[in-house]
Amino acid sequence: MIYVQLFGAFFKIGLFTLGGGYAMLALIRQDIIRYGWLTPAEFVDIVGIAEMTPGPIAVNAATFVGYRSAGIGGALLATSAVVLPSLISVFIISRVWERYKTSQMVQDMFKGIRPVVVGLVGAAAIQVGASTLQVLISLSHQGMTLLLAAATFYGVAFKKWDPIKVLAGCALIGLFIF
C-alpha cells in the first residue's frame, strides 16, 4: 500500500513540477505531511539537503522520502515515479517540435519564447542571489560570496572556463574563506 501511495504522490509531484523545482516544494510538503512520511521538521531538513546536494530538488526529495518510508525499494520507486511524467511529456513534445519546428508559426512563437527563457533565467539569478545573501550575516561573507560569484560569471561567460572545475574550485576556496 505504501508503494502505491508513494508512486501516486510522486507521480503527481513530477507532473506538477513546472518551471523549476522551488514551485512544487509546497506540493511535496502537503503530501508528505498528509501521509505522515516525514515530520515538518524533517521536511525542512530535506529541503536543506536537497539544496546542498547535486540534482533536481524533486528527485532528491523523492529519493529521501522513499528511503525513509520504505527502504531502498521505496527510494527507487518514488524516484521513478517523479521522473516518469518528464519521460512521457518530453516524448510527446519533442515529437511535435521535431515535426513543426520549420513551420512559420512555430518559428514566430519561438522568437517570443527565447527571450522569455532569458528573462526567466535572469529572474532565477536575482532570486538565488537574494536568498544566498540573505542567510549570510556578516558583511565580509557577503562580499566574498559576491566576489566568487563575479569571478565565476566572468570566467564562464567570457573565458570559457569549465563550470565543473569552477564549482569544485569555489568549494575548495569556500573551505578556507568562510
Partner: peptide
C-alpha cells in the same frame, strides 16, 4: 558556501 557563490555566478552567466 563556496558552491552557492559559484551557483549564483553560473546562473548569471
Amino acid at each position: 558556501s563556496g558552491v552557492k557563490a559559484a551557483v549564483l555566478g553560473l546562473i548569471a552567466a
